[in-house]
Nucleic acid binder design. Structure first.
Lengths: 235, 235
DNA sequence: TAGATTGTTAATCGATTAACAATC
DNA sequence: TAGATTGTTAATCGATTAACAATC
């Protein structure tokens, strides 16, 4: 197994895992890189290169045994074990995560939530209690925690993250719209929802321009704008 | 302005935008690529290359005017206009999105939500009404919609997406854990939360291995495992 | 003007794709 | 065995970084 797997490869592993899960559902027991490539709309070369970063999971003339490969990728992703998660911020997003079935299915267990709002403190969400944020350090002394999800406003994120790290948490799943600058030994995975939405918005504009339409003068509905404005701009 | 901007560049634009917003808050009025690079932990070269895909926004010997550059990137990202959004699935995640202030601040206006659960149908979230999903087509005939966010279970995603596209929606922000296969003219931006979490989980394991520890035998807390197990595995 | 810093070309690095010998 | 398909090397493509002349 290679030492440094590139981020691009890692980002594709969960997708392979998902497609293999689907194939198991369909009772397929093996598949070639070529056939999997067709399903996933990638090249067979990429699949073989990606997998061979971790070992030779296939067999010449046969392809890949699906349940074996599924298991191996699961191990790589740490899905074969339990990961204890706490959620800081029990607003809608925090509650959405706590309720999300896909996580517990993959071994991510929400052990507690934390908030500063007395209206949610003390409530229980899918078996996980919402604590007062003041009790964070106390909780972390008593309980092992692998991952902390930050679903709180940007201006509180840095302070809470610092407290988490001081109490030994080494992996943060950050939904706050800020770049946390913590120690080198702290892993941070960012989910910046508004950035994702802005990328979609960019692509919408680019697509409109690509189709020969003008940006400023355009109506929202592509079809309408086309008819009304197309002639003005050399379409 | 170049024709085809790479996905890598586009994905960095919102981050530039955010840092520029922060600089405006700090009343800084211009900055060199070198200083911005330091703040953002990227290379100055990358910043200059990225920006020059869209035009020469800077000035030799001076740097970049922040409010001008901020405005230009905003235009590129489509933040200077209103984008009408509907949300399909008024569960926790859908409600989290509907409540998210950052979106409306950037011109993304939630016009309506849709659900099949009679307990939420008819309620109003930040001024947006929750409709019965049956009324989707009727709503889309009466109202312009730029973006539909899909926050519903995986097994309903494809069907709803097909209906959206049939009714003219051309941009989908997909939170369902599946790859939607729609027409070439339909833009899809995926947010696969569980894949993000799995990547974090992968990196946790990789970090542990990198520090010379054994995976199977290890305790959860790195410090403890180190002391207890380090000697066993050639540390 | 002199100094600073951009815009842009060239060099490097990394990731993807193609090709094919190895082998099941 | 013959055919299929992997694992892996080589070729290509693209993205990042370095360098520097242009210029404010």
């Amino acid at each position: 197994m290679k030492e440094n797997i590139s981020k691009a490869v890692i980002s594709r592993l969960p997708r392979y895992y998902r497609y293999l899960s689907d194939l198991i559902e369909e009772n397929v027991d093996h598949i070639s890189s070529g056939d999997l490539a067709k399903r996933m709309h990638v090249t067979a070369s990429q699949i073989r290169q990606d997998l061979n970063n971790f070992g030779g999971f296939g067999q010449q003339g046969y392809g890949y045994n699906i349940s074996y490969l599924h298991g191996e990728i699961g191990k790589l992703l740490g899905i074969d074990r339990q990961n204890k998660v706490i959620i800081i911020g029990a607003g809608h997003l925090g509650q959405a995560l706590a309720n999300y079935q896909n996580f517990s299915k993959r071994g991510f267990l929400v052990k507690a939530l934390f908030d500063i709002d007395s209206r949610v403190i003390g409530t229980v969400i899918r078996g996980a209690k919402v604590y007062d944020l003041k009790e964070l350090e106390h909780f972390l002394r008593q309980n092992e925690v692998d991952i902390a999800a930050l679903t709180l406003p940007r201006d509180q994120a840095t302070e809470v993250a610092t407290r988490l790290v001081a109490s030994g948490v080494r992996a943060i799943w950050n939904f706050a719209h800020t770049d946390l600058q913590l120690g080198e030994d702290v892993l941070i995975e960012n989910v910046h929802l508004s950035e994702s939405l802005m990328q979609l918005s960019y692509r919408m504009l680019a697509a409109r321009e690509g189709s020969g339409e003008n940006r400023k003068e355009m109506r929202k509905k592509a079809g309408t704008a086309h008819a009304k404005r197309g002639a003005d701009f050399g379409l």
